[in-house]
Write a protein that binds this DNA or RNA. Structure first.
Length: 249
DNA sequence: CCCTGATTCGC
DNA sequence: GCGAATCAGG
């Protein structure tokens, strides 16, 4: 497999969307997790919260601490003085704020049967996210309603929610005329609503595409769907199963 | 063990 | 440029 533009684009989108390298690799197919990571780095994609980064952070923190304690000739153990020396950071790692999607469906996984070049190339140019969404959505409330209409479970109760759409295969936006103006996966960026409409695998599956409610991954309307106050148990109705339960391989 | 991403290095 | 091997944290 080679890194075609589509595949690179998918990689970027998913990577920036907070998908794990494994998921991306699986979605792309024909590549390993390592390949994805390697490619992502070569593309200059900023790393997301990595387990190993914490080591770096720890080291930097340690440096900072020692630097703070060292500069003052004698004040070593005594008082924690102000950070006098900025210390030229060897690693200007931004360590962007965790971009992981808040509560609902983080990833649109789509299953497709076969992909072939369509008549029209999808107009997924250089989606320039620009703003890396510095703000972390303030973990809203407990209950959310998924796109399928099912009610998500609160932290304490029952079993964990159905795994969020394990991406099997991304359909790189087949832009047929009927839904040429629909928002495809590749059209997603930080500014538009990522609320999925329809179901993955269906031909017209797409995303809301409205302007987002700032700080959230969805538009105001869909934030209203995604973030709802907890209801007392007795007042709740059994969640209707969306589409036949979890999708399996 | 599993997972994660980062890095290295031979190709 | 690519990605397996390796490393290292959770």
């Amino acid at each position: 497999m080679s890194w075609t533009e589509e595949r690179i684009d998918t990689l970027k989108t998913m990577w920036e969307g907070g998908q794990t390298a494994s998921q991306i690799a699986e979605a792309l197919g024909g590549v390993s997790r390592n390949a994805v990571i390697g490619k992502a780095h070569r593309l200059g994609l900023q790393s997301r919260p990595s387990p190993v980064v914490s080591k770096e952070e720890a080291r930097v923190a340690a440096e900072k601490a020692s630097a703070a304690a060292a500069p003052a000739p004698v004040a070593a153990a005594a008082a924690p003085p102000p950070p006098p020396e900025p210390k030229p950071e060897p690693r200007p790692k931004p360590v962007a704020a965790a971009p992981v999607a808040p509560p609902p469906p983080p990833a649109p996984a789509v299953e497709a049967d076969d992909e072939d070049e369509d008549d029209a190339p999808f107009a997924a140019e250089d989606a320039t996210p620009a703003a890396p969404a510095p703000e972390r959505a303030p973990q809203p409330i407990l209950r959310s309603v998924g796109p399928g209409g099912f009610v998500r479970q609160a932290p304490g109760e029952q079993q964990p929610p159905i795994a969020p759409a394990p991406p099997r295969r991304l359909v790189p936006a087949r832009t047929a005329p009927e839904y040429a103006d629909k928002t495809s996966l590749l059209d997603l960026n930080d500014k538009i609503c990522k609320w999925p409409l329809g179901h993955p695998g269906e031909p017209d599956f797409h995303f809301c595409g409205e302007k987002v409610n700032p700080g959230f991954p969805y538009c105001v309307t869909h934030c209203g769907h995604a973030y709802q106050a907890q209801l007392p148990r007795r007042d709740r109705r059994a969640p209707p199963l969306p589409f036949g339960g979890p999708r399996m391989r």
